[in-house]
């Protein structure tokens, strides 16, 4: 198992390397930060001077080599926008906000989908199933920015239960978490419903019933664990869409996380910060997937990582 984890971590290196290359080239192709920094009145000489200071006058491959060299020593570059602060520091400062938002979204998704999926499967094609199916289609169809605005309107403005934006209060995470988690909850409900239905039709469920095991025990001991296997895989796959969703949700709720930072950094061509965010996000998604695979092998004895 340890060998497996080591191997998987080693496999991340080429992926991260590829990501740095793609982000680096794309960012440079999209425009020059210097003209944006100095404004329209800047003279040619001023621009040239600043370009030289940032090393932007050198050929792209040289710039990339320098960047990679720095990266290997843990230097992610400096932020143009935040007073030359190290980019990594800028990003890490915002990480807890996004992490708490994503965690909240995941908690919602699981708390909603677990009972909803199981009930829908048990009452297949009957009223509870139809309600669950309707809600999950709705959950998937609503864009999260729209849901976010509606939540603010109803619970923050009309009822005044929660702050409209920001993260000063501890419970401020409730609304943005729900906005971000709703579509994941919907996806997971539908998935759990169908895998539950499949598991319940398996021969070993019939065996369990033939042993005289009652319906609750059949459910708890024989069915749910099997159904959770695909559920877990999808949580891993959806980790990346949670990251993407955070960008939008943070914008709506003015949530001071990485997503909001990313938008600001892109708009001001703060290259070092954007690069750092992308690399960090990729790393997180890969680590989540590794975690899922490890959990998977703990639940399913047929999967053995050696």
């Amino acid at each position: 198992m340890i060998g497996y984890v080591v191997r998987r971590v080693l496999q991340m290196i080429p992926v991260l390397f590829g990501i740095t290359l793609v982000v680096f080239v794309l960012l440079r192709a999209s425009g020059d930060p210097v003209s944006l920094m100095l404004g329209e009145e800047a003279s040619e000489a001023q621009i040239a001077q600043l370009r030289e200071a940032y090393g932007l006058d050198r050929p792209l491959y040289e710039q990339y080599a320098v960047y990679m060299g720095d990266l290997l020593t843990g230097d992610f570059g400096r932020s143009i926008r935040y007073n030359n602060q190290p980019a990594l520091e800028v990003v890490l400062e915002r990480l807890p906000a996004t992490a708490s938002l994503a965690a909240m979204a995941l908690v919602y998704a699981i708390l909603i989908s677990l009972p909803a999926g199981i009930i829908a499967a048990l009452y297949r094609r009957r009223i509870p199933d139809q309600i669950a199916s309707f809600l999950s289609v709705l959950g998937q169809a609503m864009p999260n920015f729209w849901l976010g605005i509606m939540l603010i309107l109803v619970f923050a403005i009309w009822f005044g239960w929660f702050p409209v934006s920001g993260r000063e209060d501890a419970y401020a995470v409730v609304l943005p978490g729900l906005a971000l988690g709703a579509s994941l909850a919907a996806v997971l409900t539908r998935l759990l419903r169908s895998s539950m239905i499949e598991v319940l039709s398996q021969d070993y469920i019939r065996t369990a019933r033939a042993k005289g095991i009652g319906p609750t025990a059949v459910m708890l001991r024989h069915a749910i664990r099997n159904a959770l296997l695909s559920y877990l895989t999808v949580i891993g796959l959806e980790a990346s869409s949670l990251m993407a969703g955070a960008v939008v949700t943070e914008q709506v709720f003015a949530w001071p996380g990485i997503g909001l930072l990313a938008i600001q950094a892109i708009n001001s061509r703060d290259m070092a910060v954007v690069q750092t965010i992308v690399i960090l996000a990729a790393l997180i998604v890969m680590l989540v997937n590794l975690l899922v695979d490890v959990l998977y092998s703990l639940i399913d004895p047929r999967i053995q990582h050696v």
């Binding site: 065996t207 033939a210 005289g212």
Partner: peptide
Amino acid sequence: RRIRGNDVAMIFQEPMTSLNPLL
């Protein structure tokens, strides 16, 4: 249910799928 598996027991055709893979 008290009779199933107790007074009357059953075995099935497919031994490969009749046992729960996770237990």
